[in-house]
Design a protein around this nucleic acid. Structure first.
Lengths: 152, 152
DNA sequence: TATTGTTATACTCTATAACTATA
DNA sequence: TATAGTTATAGAGTATAACAATA
């Protein structure tokens, strides 16, 4: 891909983009610091994907979380140590590892949804209804920004 | 601080909070992966703070970036290696280190603002005007969430 | 003694490269 | 030979604890 074609197009977006990048990175750092004991945001994110996808192969889980397989191997090992997932070899293709949410993982997610979000919830309490609504409207957009595949 | 007082208050917020946490962490991961060569998002964020605050002590910079001083020591050392900041002892209190943007740093920031944001800019191009506006309205809210001090 | 910053150490998260086991 | 996952290794980013230099 040669350098950019005649840019001259996204001028007002530049500030949005810069603010978004800095704001997201800083908020992510704060959230990481709020990690609840052993369960870091990466683990929680992976656990949420296991819940969402049901029993899932390690490779699919890595793809869903957009990390490389070795990273997911480690995350799953820690989730297993914590008793949050069960791991078993696929009966038909014994190379494949299937990861499933355990009862403990389900409990943790349920507890987490009431407890772990206290940090943000406290801050949201200080937002006006309009501000909260604005934030809520932006959430699917964040997901889209994070989730789409690079356009080549 | 004893466990939570009678929660029973922030019910609808819970989903917002969970989505925000997961969305922000995932987008942060993607942005980290987009790091431009040697200049990672952490470095760029610190560099932006140096620009914003002007010649600044290492401690104030750490506070602004909400990291611990040892972390900032490392980040500043790398920015110095890259030629983006100058570091000098304060003449009057020689314990103090002052960090200032160099010409190279200023150049980098200027280039970066046209180039480094391509990842998000490409994605934003696919948003409607309304979606972009929604995102823009949410940005100051992200800053507030990331920036406020914990309420005890 | 108090403050500013650095060094030492450790852990999480992530990656790439090389390997194992299975197909 | 090709695929799924693991092991080995490395580096960024962060923290706490212990230290040094200066006030």
């Amino acid at each position: 891909m040669p350098p950019p074609p005649p840019p001259a197009s996204l001028p007002t977006d530049a500030d949005v983009v810069a603010s978004l990048r800095l704001g997201v990175m800083r908020l992510a750092r704060r959230l990481r610091q709020q990690a609840d004991g052993d369960v870091t945001p990466s683990l929680l994110s992976a656990l949420a994907s296991v819940e969402r996808l049901g029993p899932v192969t390690l490779g699919d889980l890595a793809a869903a979380e957009r990390v490389q397989p070795p990273t997911m191997t480690k995350l799953v090992a820690r989730l297993e140590d914590l008793g949050f997932v069960d791991r078993g070899a696929d009966a038909r293709d014994r190379r494949v590892v299937r990861v499933a949410l355990s009862a403990g993982g389900r409990d943790y997610i349920a507890r987490s949804r009431r407890r772990k979000d206290a940090y943000l919830a406290r801050r949201l309490e200080r937002f006006t209804a309009g501000e909260r609504a604005a934030l809520e409207r932006a959430l699917p957009l964040l997901e889209r920004l994070a989730g789409e595949e690079p356009p080549s």
